[in-house]
């Protein structure tokens, strides 16, 4: 069962086809399907709002999850020509790679956030290992894409719970908030660079040309970002971080290296979504699993987290300078924090 995707591609072919598809999607992005919104200044930090489709992304399930479709938690996956427009992407997850200097393992996150940033709007999680379906659903939800999920039968109960959670917290999409522009180009390293920026919660959008409304533009081949620097995407992401400066980052997370943040919002409100990729998907440090810093002065209006108790809430809200900080308690896979801008 492949969820109705017309063909299966693997390895390098998959990579190249993804890149081509992404570039096509990017062209659509440029032509106006996804419009770059006007930049707004939040306490001196330029934040660009990337317009989103008016409706939330839709989740579809293959026949493997027909029971959940019958319960009305998702739609049945399209078939035939409709299915061909969905691009196959890998399942999100995390791998723990050995750190050669110590007896420790470094988590390596496999997120599709960079693919969505390059314009993919209709995707298919064809191969979803057991234990990953709810994360795939959460990822698609957070990045507001239409997604077909082909879950492992063992995941149906958990996936059902996640879909109920997502339905309960669905809202019309808000523009993505970013302050870095990455100028698209033909470099084969660009995908990995974008992946590392996503992984490091450096909030960016892919742009056809430098966007002066942003705090930082990243263009390979410029003096600040020489092409050869991209041969090591890890170092390159560090360079981007250094050029922007941590003080200007829209979101900082302390206490985790396996959570990806997405910030959406407008002048009056914001939604911070936290996706946990840790192996157990669980951030388990009690009421203070993660300390969050968001640029801008907000009051938390709602906290909702998959796997958290209904009483769970953010705590120790502070407003140092032009920012908002708070603890996020334990959660599993996805936490949503709605923020209201302070007058």
């Amino acid at each position: 069962m492949n969820g109705g995707v017309s063909r299966s591609v693997r390895g390098q072919d998959l990579h190249e086809q993804e890149a081509r598809r992404a570039r096509r999607s990017k062209n659509l992005l440029i032509s106006g399907l996804l419009l770059a919104g006007a930049a707004v200044a939040i306490h001196g930090v330029l934040v660009s709002a990337v317009e989103q489709p008016a409706a939330p992304g839709r989740l579809y399930l293959t026949a493997a999850a027909s029971r959940l479709v019958e319960e009305g938690l998702a739609a049945a996956a399209p078939t035939g020509p409709d299915a061909a427009s969905y691009q196959e992407i890998p399942s999100p997850g995390v791998r723990y790679l050995p750190n050669v200097a110590r007896a420790t393992n470094i988590p390596w996150i496999d997120s599709n956030g960079w693919r969505f940033a390059r314009g993919m709007r209709k995707v298919s999680y064809v191969k979803v290992p057991a234990g990953s379906a709810s994360l795939a659903a959460a990822e698609a939800f957070v990045f507001n894409v239409d997604a077909i999920i082909n879950p492992d039968p063992k995941d149906l109960e958990d996936l059902g719970k996640m879909l109920r959670f997502l339905k309960a917290h669905e809202q019309p999409p808000l523009p993505a908030m970013v302050n870095i522009g990455v100028v698209d180009g033909p470099s084969p390293q660009l995908d990995e660079v974008l992946n590392l920026l996503t992984r490091r919660n450096l909030l960016y959008k892919v742009v056809p040309a430098p966007d002066r409304t942003l705090d930082l533009n990243v263009q390979l081949g410029t003096p600040d970002f020489p092409a050869e620097a991209a041969s090591n995407p890890y170092e390159f992401a560090a360079r981007v971080r250094a050029k922007l400066g941590d003080d200007k980052r829209l979101v900082r997370l302390y206490g985790t290296d396996t959570v990806i943040a997405r910030l959406t919002g407008d002048r009056s409100r914001a939604r911070l979504s936290l996706l946990s990729f840790s192996r157990r998907r669980q951030q388990d440090a009690g009421a203070q699993a993660i300390r969050v810093r968001v640029e801008g002065r907000y009051q938390p209006a709602k906290f909702a987290a998959y796997g958290a108790s209904p009483e769970a809430k953010v705590s120790d809200v502070r407003h140092p300078g032009t920012t908002t900080e708070f603890w996020v308690p334990d959660f599993n896979t996805l936490a949503i924090i709605d923020l209201e801008a302070m007058k």
Binding site: N201, D246, Y254, R318
Partner: peptide, 19 residues
């Protein structure tokens, strides 16, 4: 738990969590 108002911030090796 931990005190949000008492910490040392430093970036040693490019780590993300600097507090």
């Amino acid at each position: 738990g931990y005190d949000p108002d008492v910490y040392v911030e430093v970036n040693f090796f490019g780590e993300e969590d600097t507090r």
